[in-house]
């Protein structure tokens, strides 16, 4: 479980309010990992590939991605699809965090290879519970080495 500490979390979320709430709840549930927040899908991929604005920084590894679906530039589905199509990123666990609970969209995400799908409930208690579950998830999941 010691490795959990080294996992950097990439939060792909265009709504800064949501990003902040997610971060607050993650921290509150005891997650202390580095949290990188990007606002659109392209930035997410750039970060993961160490390209564009993240040229040369090198991705903190290993990673966990919290991915919203409604994103500017590239949406969550596209990010997910490209991650799963790319050798470097296909093993990175992805948790979809979005407001829709449309069963077809949920299915589509699982088909594309996401690991967990979490609906952002309007009820804040449920919301923070969901985020805490991520914390729990992080503590049990075996995150593969990026190398």
């Amino acid at each position: 479980m010691a490795r959990t500490e080294e996992v950097a979390i990439l939060l792909v979320e265009d709504d800064p309010g949501h990003a902040r709430l997610i971060e607050k709840n993650l921290r509150r549930s005891g997650i202390t990992n580095q949290l990188v927040t990007v606002g659109d899908g392209q930035q997410a991929l750039d970060y993961l590939h160490g390209e564009g604005a993240y040229e040369g920084t090198g991705a903190a590894s290993p990673l966990l991605v919290l991915l919203d679906l409604n994103l500017p530039v590239l949406d969550g589905y596209q990010v997910l699809k490209r991650m799963k199509a790319d050798q470097r990123t296909k093993h990175i666990p992805v948790i979809i965090l979005t407001t829709t609970d449309d069963t077809r969209e949920v299915k589509r995400c699982y088909d594309l290879g996401c690991n967990v799908y979490i609906t952002k409930p309007v009820d804040y208690q449920e919301f923070s519970d969901a985020i805490r579950k991520i914390g729990l998830f992080l503590s049990v999941v075996t995150v593969p080495d990026g190398e």
Partner: peptide, 21 residues
């Protein structure tokens, strides 16, 4: 309807969240 309700719901998450905060 799907998109609108999706987009309308996103700010609600923040409203509810931050009022709890």
């Amino acid at each position: 309807a799907t998109i609108v309700s999706h987009d309308l719901r996103a700010p609600l998450v923040s409203l509810k969240g931050f009022s709890s905060e």
